[in-house]
């Protein structure tokens, strides 16, 4: 059962990767692509596949796996099925950082101002959440909510004063997308994301123990403070970098753990890997769908699509919780 879900999610991810390379607004047959990749020198196929679709696919994979993994960690840590990677304020910190870069025009002078400041924002938000929220799960959630509010207010403030072009660009960025991302975006996100994953991977044992509640977990020698800190660092690095590179992509981190949990016997540690794989598959499949679902020829933004698809799931989750809650 457990190996099965890992295999299924890995297979789903493989299919998603292939589709992500194959599908686009311009159709290219696998033979064209193979030909383009094997002959030296730039041609249309290699340009589109290597410079457009490949970085987009890799970034989608990194972002999706990050969201799935950190969603699973946070739901385990907070023992709250509605927890998502945005809960600790990291995403909104990243959003504020990137929006500030766009607002002050840094983004037009320096290509990477937005993702770089996004990361700075994510780390600053995580630091703030930790400073106010350490020492307890509830205080951590509350501090995260406060930091999220602060980031959101900052974004609104920037929108308030932004000239029309900047406001348009900010809106576009906030919607979340991996369209037309470059290898440079991948390079920027790549060092931090696996670092974050590593930190999150170390939380497994503690998350399992937390299935017994905080007191029993502590009695089993799990340091809750350290567990919270490691989880926060992992989320800050990986979600911060992912949000900075791709904007805010909602619901994947919420949904992915739920999809795999029943198959691993609800054990928090064992949801981590399949949830990461499923998250990556979800983001890539949603991105492929976003290329096909066009309105007036224009792509629907990835973040908009995941929200549209994810919201009904959220309603379902609420209904189910209402039915099973005592």
């Amino acid at each position: 059962m457990r190996a099965a879900i890992t295999l299924i999610s890995a297979a789903a991810l493989a299919v998603a990767v292939v589709l992500s390379i194959l599908v686009g607004s311009v159709w290219m047959s696998p033979r064209d692509i193979l030909h383009g990749l094997t002959t030296p020198g730039p041609d249309l196929a290699s340009l589109i596949v290597l410079d457009l679709r490949a970085p987009r696919t890799l970034l989608g994979l990194l972002v999706g796996a990050t969201l799935g993994l950190s969603g699973a960690v946070l739901q385990g840590l907070l023992r709250n099925p509605l927890a998502d990677p945005g809960l600790l304020g990291v995403s909104s910190g990243a959003a504020f950082g990137a929006v500030a870069a766009i607002y002050y025009g840094l983004a037009s002078h320096f290509f990477f101002a937005a993702p770089l400041l996004g990361m700075v924002g994510a780390l600053a938000a995580a630091g703030l959440t930790y400073a106010f929220g350490r020492g307890g799960t509830l205080s951590m959630i509350l501090a995260g909510a406060a930091v999220s509010g602060l980031g959101g207010a900052g974004v609104s403030l920037a929108l308030n004063f932004a000239p029309i072009n900047a406001a348009y660009e900010i809106m576009t960025w906030l919607q979340g997308s991996i369209t037309d991302k470059t290898w440079d975006h991948v390079k920027l996100a790549l060092p931090l994301i696996p670092l974050g994953w590593t930190a999150l991977g170390f939380t497994g044992r503690g998350l399992d123990a937390l299935a017994l509640g905080e007191v029993q977990a502590a009695s089993l020698g799990v340091s809750l403070n350290r567990l919270r800190l490691v989880a926060l660092i992992g989320v800050a690095l990986s979600v911060g970098a992912a949000t900075a590179a791709a904007g805010a992509i909602g619901f994947v981190g919420l949904v992915a753990p739920h999809l795999v949990r029943p198959f691993v016997g609800h054990q928090p540690r064992r949801t981590l890997l399949p949830s990461a794989l499923f998250g990556a598959a979800l983001v890539l499949l949603a991105d492929v769908a976003s290329r096909l679902l066009r309105y007036n020829g224009e792509e629907i933004k990835l973040g908009v699509l995941t929200s549209l698809v994810g919201t009904p799931f959220f309603f379902w989750l609420v209904l189910r919780l209402r039915r099973t809650a005592p």
Binding site: D208, A211, L212, G213
Partner: peptide, 28 residues
Amino acid sequence: ARRRGFLPQSPRAEWPISVERLVMLGLT
């Protein structure tokens, strides 16, 4: 933790894990 076991008042499990898994957590 290896030398001292502790049972709080009315302990509850937060996830529907199996009995075997729950017991195994004592080996953490």
